[in-house]
Simulated scan of single mutants.
Amino acid sequence: MSGTLRNPTIRSGRSFDLGKMNLRQLWIAYLTYPTILLYFALIAVSFGLAVHFFAGWFQTAIAALAVILIYPVVWYLLHRYVLHGHLLYKWRFTAALWKRIHFDHHQDPHLLDVLFGGPATTLPTIGAVTIPVGWLIGGPGSAATAFCAGVIITCIYEFFHCIQHLNYKPRAAWIQRMKARHVLHHFHDEDGNYGITSYVVDRALGTYYVDARSRERSPTVFNLGYDLEQAQRYPWVMRLTGHAPKDRPDGARPGSDSAAQGNRHAA
Rank of each mutant, 00 (worst) to 15 (best):
H105V: 02
A50M: 08
V74A: 08
Y39S: 10
F58P: 13
A63C: 11
I43R: 03
R80P: 05
A61T: 07
T32W: 07
P119S: 04
H86D: 12
I43V: 14
L97W: 10
L31I: 01
I62Y: 01
V73A: 09
L112F: 12
G117H: 01
F47Y: 15
P119T: 01
L111I: 12
F58Q: 15
A66V: 06
D108C: 05
I68K: 15
W98G: 04
L42K: 05
V51F: 07
H106C: 10
L111A: 06
G85W: 00
W27I: 01
F54M: 08
L97A: 09
F47I: 03
F58G: 13
T35P: 08
W98N: 05
Y76K: 11
L88Q: 00
L88F: 09
A44F: 05
D108S: 14
L37Y: 02
L115Y: 05
L38I: 05
R92S: 13
W91K: 15
D104C: 09
L65Y: 05
A61D: 04
V51D: 04
G56V: 06
A55N: 04
L77P: 00
Q59R: 15
I36P: 03
A66W: 01
I68W: 04
L112K: 10
W75C: 05
Y76W: 15
V114E: 08
Y39I: 01
A61I: 10
H79W: 07
V82C: 11
L37V: 06
R100T: 10
W98M: 08
D113Y: 10
P119W: 02
Y39K: 11
R100M: 05
L83C: 07
A29L: 00
T60I: 03
W91C: 12
P34S: 11
F93P: 04
D108K: 15
L31T: 03
F93E: 12
Y39P: 04
W27Y: 07
H102G: 08
G56S: 10
R100G: 04
I28Y: 00
I101V: 14
F40Q: 14
Q107I: 11
G85L: 07
K90F: 03
H84V: 10
V51M: 14
W57E: 12
Y81R: 14
F116T: 00
A50F: 00
L78I: 14
L49D: 01
F93N: 12
D108E: 10
L83R: 09
I101D: 02
P34C: 05
I43T: 08
F54E: 02
I101W: 03
S46C: 11
H102T: 04
T60V: 09
L49W: 03
H84I: 09
